[in-house]
Design a binder for these strands. Structure first.
Lengths: 75, 75
DNA sequence: ACAAGATGTAGTATCTCTACTACAAATCAT
DNA sequence: ATGATTTGTAGTAGAGATACTACATCTTGT
């Protein structure tokens, strides 16, 4: 649908916890390249994966994903 | 991945508001059969659609979708 | 009883998501 | 400076999501 892009904060949350993509991917049970694709925004995850990611970071889905860009935190 | 099923309460929320699948589909900008597929659990929505559904019902994603079955309300 | 609307089933086509492999580039520890 | 870890790029292949059409069934109002 062209504009069904979903923004995410996976890279930020992952950096915050100091874990690598491989570690996150293993915890989620997906391929480590999949995490890379998501962080780079090449595509958005399935709902199932999104729920698992939010669960892993112990936040709600809306904290990690949004249809609108996240505001910057710094400066 | 075989067990990446996602349960949802779309039919319940829709019944609660007394709107038809067609009306919901129109509001979401998807085909009305797509809503049917989701309610019947034939597949789960993309994350983008899930976010729009939660937004439409004015609840969080977790209220509508879960990787675990929702408990019954009645009886 | 009839019509209208709502829902279910079936089938095809297209696009997105995920897995996987392999290699390149960048970063980091020692 | 060497090796290990992390990240990016590229390509193929299969599964899942969505649109769409058409028809059947079930409900509901009048």
């Amino acid at each position: 649908m062209a504009d069904d892009v979903v923004y995410n904060r996976i890279a930020m949350l992952r950096a915050e916890r100091g874990i690598s993509r491989r570690q996150l991917a293993d915890a989620l049970g997906v391929h480590y390249q999949t995490v890379g694709y998501l962080e780079r925004g090449e595509y958005s995850p399935s709902l199932h994966l999104a729920l698992k990611i939010a669960e892993y970071f112990e936040v709600s889905v809306e904290v990690v994903f949004s249809t609108k860009p996240f505001p910057r935190i710094g400066v």
